[in-house]
Design a protein around this nucleic acid. Structure first.
Lengths: 222, 222
DNA sequence: GCATTCAGATACAACTATGTATTAGAGTTC
DNA sequence: GAACTCTAATACATAGTTGTATCTGAATGC
């Protein structure tokens, strides 16, 4: 068995312990759903969407397949819910940045923050990579995923516009395309950062990102 | 069955037709290998590495599993050969660009050309995406893939250095990191270009790439 | 032209996955 | 506390995959 990139198990949510309070059916069901979702994220990050069986997910969560099928129509169904959940959390992070005091002097810090927050734990990076690949092959899925991506793009485009205004720079009229490119750039750089941390350690990744960002948006030379 | 992104079958190589000339054993074997490799690229692009069975590959190539196992140790084995073959072809393309008359005024054209050449046919884009994901999980594979990526990075870094010199610009000392970032950027942008061609058509993709490149390397404002 | 060799086909045994149909057991309601 | 209702476990039928072991027919060499 080959050793993969280290996967951090998100440990914040719904730990396994004898519930003090007897849960209502709804609560219990919701807990099961959450556990299944968390387990799926870990399992998919470890083995890949296709190689992860429903049994893997259920087992990892401490259930059997019965529980799975009683909560989700299919693996794809669960996968989409997983992405939506993650997307919402990212959107919230971005929104928080936008709503924060927009100190116009540290755009770079903000972007670096976003970069750092975005996929701090590799699990969700991998899950999204998995999703992109899946989207290439399944038109229906692609549509749904694109909707999420475009939502994120628009948030980032707005982010860009805000900062340009703050700084008295003209808002580039390809702001949306630039936002899309930023997303691509971050993902691309993150890949190298994750898979060859010696060649591109965190500091270098952040530095090259901020070089490119500031060059692109402020015309600052490296 | 969901419709995926259209896959162009590379039709240049070793078509199926009754051979005029009787092939020698070696030639015939080589032909089989090539057919299997081509078929694998198409099949993997269509269904993904894991979901593609050895049978799929062999069948697609017009053989049975027997032929496959008599030519490759395993699916992974074939996959690596496939990547190497593709890598070599990309390296040659890049080298050709480097060796061509380095007209210093149209760096952008050259880069656009590279971008266009790089993954003109989606098959190889997808195969590489598949590889990246696989690399995250398999340390041995990751090492081999990283070696290829770093080779490409160095070529691109050299490319960047050459052009900067030509133009009398200082060669950025993070040239290698910038090369890596360029690779990431191109892959990232290409993904959106492929999966949402309405949002990011070819022209927009090229334009945003050249905006970012020229800003980064020449400090040209958009 | 006959024996040899090797590419590729076929047969086989062990495993793994999927989805459904049924069942057990616990929560809810009155 | 008895009937009812859901969640999740279990059992089952089906089907797909892998690698190896064995066989066949065509190319080669003497």
């Amino acid at each position: 068995m080959q050793m993969g990139i280290e996967i951090h198990v998100p440990d914040g949510v719904v730990p396994w312990r004898m519930p003090r309070k007897r849960l209502t059916r709804e609560e219990s069901r919701e807990q099961t759903r959450l556990r299944l979702l968390d387990a799926a994220a870990v399992a998919i990050a470890k083995k890949g969407l296709t190689a992860t069986s429903v049994e893997d997910i259920a087992g990892q969560a401490g259930y059997t397949r019965g529980a799975f099928y009683s909560n989700f129509k299919s693996k794809t169904d669960l996968f989409i819910e997983l992405l939506k959940r993650d997307h919402m959390s990212i959107q919230e992070d971005l929104q928080r940045l936008l709503d924060a005091n927009l100190s116009s002097d540290d755009l770079q810090k903000q972007l670096a923050l976003f970069y750092a927050q975005c996929y701090r734990d590799h699990t969700s990076y991998i899950v999204w990579a998995e999703a992109r690949l899946h989207a290439v092959r399944d038109a229906k899925f692609r549509q749904r995923l694109n909707a999420l991506c475009l939502e994120k793009r628009d948030t980032i485009a707005y982010f860009i516009a805000q900062f340009c205004k703050r700084l008295g720079m003209p808002v580039p009229d390809a702001a949306k395309d630039l936002a899309l490119a930023s997303m691509g750039l971050i993902d691309g750089v993150l890949y190298f950062n994750i898979t060859m941390p010696n060649e591109l350690p965190d500091a270098a990744a952040e530095s090259v990102l901020s070089t490119i960002f500031s060059a692109t948006f402020f015309g600052t030379q490296p």
